[in-house]
Simulated assay, not measured.
Amino acid sequence: MRHLQPFSRKRVRRSPVIRRLTGAGIFLLGPFLLWQVSAQFFPPLVVASPAQTLDALWRLLCSPDFLNGQLLISLGRIAMGLGMAIIAGICLGIAAGLYRPVRLILEPFRWIFTSIPAVVVVMVAMLWFGMGTRMVVSIAATMLTPIIYVGVVEGMAAMDKELLEMAAVYRFSTAMRIRHIQLMAIAAPLVSSLVIATGNSVRIVILAEVLGAIQGLGRGLAEARTNLDTPQLYAYVLLSLLIVGLVESGIVRPLQRFSEKWRI
């Protein structure tokens, strides 16, 4: 039994990793097979095969014009729009959580910007800002701020009132209240909102670039559609998914695990 105990522990420790790898393999293999089968039944103009798509993606990544004129520009716009949304959403969310009149004033704006279609905002922003980075970033920040705002407001509403009373009794400073009570309350909802906002940021930026930009991934996507270059069109879609996946797994998920440990 003594010799079997270490083996059983290793098996228990490895089983979650094996399950995750198996789940990821099934998740990737299923759509890949469906994609491959669809490419056999539909003409190449409609469905590009995985091999054609990967070849087009590799050619894009090896092109300096694509890297400098499209990819880096779009990544910069995504970062600026998301960063502005995070700052505005946190500030407005904390103010709305602390002061009910502020929340009542902001609620109609929150409802409008979460209900209006993104394409309508793009059309209006094109009239106000013209075509270019300023227009794309302003749209991304406008559409993403309510997502962050809602998460912060929910965290502030769920804040433990007894902790606030204790802080008042022991005369906590403003910095201590923010560090030990407010930030801990909004950490988990904020990170959850950030996960949603990250995916939406790529979608909104590419949509804005398709309709009103002369550079960026959206512009390349529009050109591939105009030229009926289906493999390149699929390559842009795949690249967009990869960007969201890399940002979420490399930045957002570690931040989420850190916030959970911090709360504990």
Rank of each mutant, 00 (worst) to 15 (best):
R19P: 10
F129A: 07
L60R: 14
S249D: 14
I105H: 02
I196W: 04
S63Q: 12
V121G: 06
Q5Y: 02
V47G: 05
F109G: 07
W262H: 11
L92H: 09
G81T: 02
F27G: 15
Y170R: 08
Y99S: 15
A88R: 08
A168Q: 03
I86D: 08
R14Y: 06
T133D: 14
R203V: 14
S193W: 00
I139W: 00
Y149S: 02
N227W: 15
L164T: 00
I206R: 08
V150G: 02
M126N: 06
I181R: 09
I139V: 05
S63N: 15
V247Q: 09
V153M: 06
M176Q: 14
P50F: 03
V150N: 06
V152K: 04
R59L: 15
G216R: 05
P117N: 01
P189Q: 03
P254H: 12
V137F: 00
Q5P: 00
A157V: 00
P101S: 10
W128S: 05
L239A: 03
G30L: 14
P44Y: 02
G25Q: 07
P101K: 12
H3T: 10
R203F: 08
R253W: 06
A141I: 04
L163T: 01
L106P: 05
A187K: 03
I94E: 00
A56V: 04
D229K: 13
A24R: 08
I264N: 12
F7G: 08
Q232M: 15
E165M: 03
G245H: 13
A85P: 08
V247N: 08
A235S: 09
L228H: 11
V237P: 00
G25S: 15
A141Y: 05
G245C: 06
A96V: 06
M159H: 01
R20M: 11
Q5C: 03
L104V: 08
L57N: 12
T145V: 07
S173C: 09
I87Y: 03
Q36F: 12
L241C: 15
S240H: 02
L98W: 10
T230W: 12
R100C: 07
E209Q: 07
F113V: 06
M143R: 00
S193F: 02
G151L: 04
